[in-house]
């Protein structure tokens, strides 16, 4: 009787664990996809301002490729870098709106 109970308990645990793992897996997939989406939007904004950086697109491509091959962690890591660079390029565009004037030659 004990063995039967133990088998049922283990079976139930496995089902619950498998379900949770699947949910975590799916959440991570959505998470990395949304980060890639955010990076793409920010980079498009930088590009519209003629201020996009070369490595940003490289990391977006890397993230997309990792996601399609099922490497969730790799996708997230590359997408995070792309977001960081896209934000930095936009910050640079904002700052330079004013600071370029300090560099101009005056006679």
């Amino acid at each position: 009787m004990k063995k039967v109970m133990l088998t049922i308990l283990l079976g139930l645990s496995y089902t619950v664990l498998a379900d949770s793992a699947s949910k975590i897996d799916s959440a991570s997939k959505i998470d990395s996809a949304s980060i890639i989406d955010r990076a793409e939007k920010l980079n498009a904004e930088a590009r519209a301002r003629h201020n996009a950086w070369v490595p940003t697109q490289r990391f977006i491509d890397q993230a997309n490729s990792a996601l399609s091959s099922g490497d969730e962690e790799g996708a997230k890591a590359a997408a995070d870098k792309a977001v960081f660079l896209a934000e930095a390029s936009l910050k640079q565009a904002d700052v330079e709106q004013k600071t370029w004037k300090q560099r101009q030659l005056v006679k």
Partner: peptide, 17 residues
Amino acid sequence: GKQFYYSRRGQLNFSCS
């Protein structure tokens, strides 16, 4: 055009000037 010349751009943060 002048603003473009003096503005920092790219990851290396350099302007033409």
